[in-house]
């Protein structure tokens, strides 16, 4: 289903290393230990899913890797280089789709292609349309952002993040607002894309079945400040079906790991 422009030679996937990373938010009123210490090594092309209770610091963790925030302690490195800020090598898909209302859908998806200065406007347009087809939004290229449903916006945001072929993909609960059917289709697409491009992916979700369906490794986080409670390797063959009994079984294991976590805030158990 994916065409040449999408599957073609992607840049080498990135290796993401977190060592002893913590994040503390200090405001005039409070000071919050949001995260860590966390040490995690995501290999080139690996698909790592992060699960953890609400408010434990998952978004914060992705923000640190994306370079939107700087760690209070420790280091985040991409291919050995310290992360100094956001860059086009790491695409982020936000919890709320951050599409630009002043652009139509096609121009939103083509937005990140400007960095590829060798591409003509026509080529950028062609690639944008291809990614819109991938997320089943053909026919909506001239729509304004507010004319799309929540799930359609999320799909457009996915297309926008993928189009410039980043070396790493950071997804913050991107499928939270989608219906089961669309979700399943996107799981299949995402797995196929991942098989073809081996883009390093860090994916946050609350859904343990989603985690088992997509991940090479599932990192289970503790309550805030999140540390790694356990790591579950998912060794099922791909592509995986969302309703495969083996996937359900893995999901059950991940859920058990999550349940083992103390629910009271402040419990920062290290595994």
């Amino acid at each position: 289903m994916t065409t040449a422009a999408i599957a073609g030679s992607a840049a080498a996937p990135a290796r993401i290393t977190l060592s002893g990373v913590t994040k503390r938010f200090v405001t005039p009123r409070t000071s919050v230990n949001a995260l860590g210490p966390i040490s995690l090594d995501v290999a080139e092309g690996e698909f790592v899913v992060l699960v953890g209770p609400s408010g434990c610091g998952k978004t914060t963790l992705l923000n640190l890797v994306a370079g939107f925030e700087t760690p209070t302690d420790g280091e985040v490195r991409v291919d050995g280089a310290l992360v100094a800020g956001p860059g086009p090598d790491r695409a982020m898909i936000f919890q709320e789709p951050a599409l630009f209302p002043w652009l139509n859908i096609e121009d939103n998806v083509a937005f990140g292609l400007r960095q590829h200065t060798h591409m003509s406007a026509a080529e950028r347009r062609a690639v944008a349309l291809e990614y819109l087809r991938l997320v089943h939004l053909e026919g909506f290229e001239h729509a304004f952002v507010h004319e799309l449903s929540g799930g359609m916006k999320q799909r457009a945001a996915l297309a926008r993040a993928l189009a410039p072929r980043p070396r790493a993909l950071l997804c913050d609960e991107p499928f939270g607002s989608l219906d089961a059917l669309t979700r399943e289709r996107l799981y299949a697409e995402l797995q196929e894309l991942h098989a073809q491009t081996r883009r390093t992916t860090m994916f946050v979700t609350h859904n343990t079945r989603e985690a088992a369906c997509l991940a090479d490794r599932v990192v289970v986080l503790t309550t805030r400040p999140a540390t790694i409670a356990s790591v579950v390797a998912v060794d099922l063959p791909r592509p995986r079906n969302f309703y495969d009994p083996h996937v359900s079984e893995q999901a059950g294991q991940i859920l058990a790991q999550l349940r083992a976590e103390p629910t009271a805030a402040g419990g920062g158990l290290d595994a």
Binding site: A66, G67, F68, G85, P86, G87, P88, R90, A91, M92, F94, E96, A98, F100, F111, G112, R114, Q115, R160, A161, P164, P166
Partner: peptide, 19 residues
């Protein structure tokens, strides 16, 4: 998150202002 999205899509400097 508009500015964050733009920056992780490779926009910086003057383009961040104008675009």
């Amino acid at each position: 998150h508009y500015l964050r999205a733009a920056r992780s899509l490779g926009t910086s400097g003057v383009a961040l202002s104008t675009r």
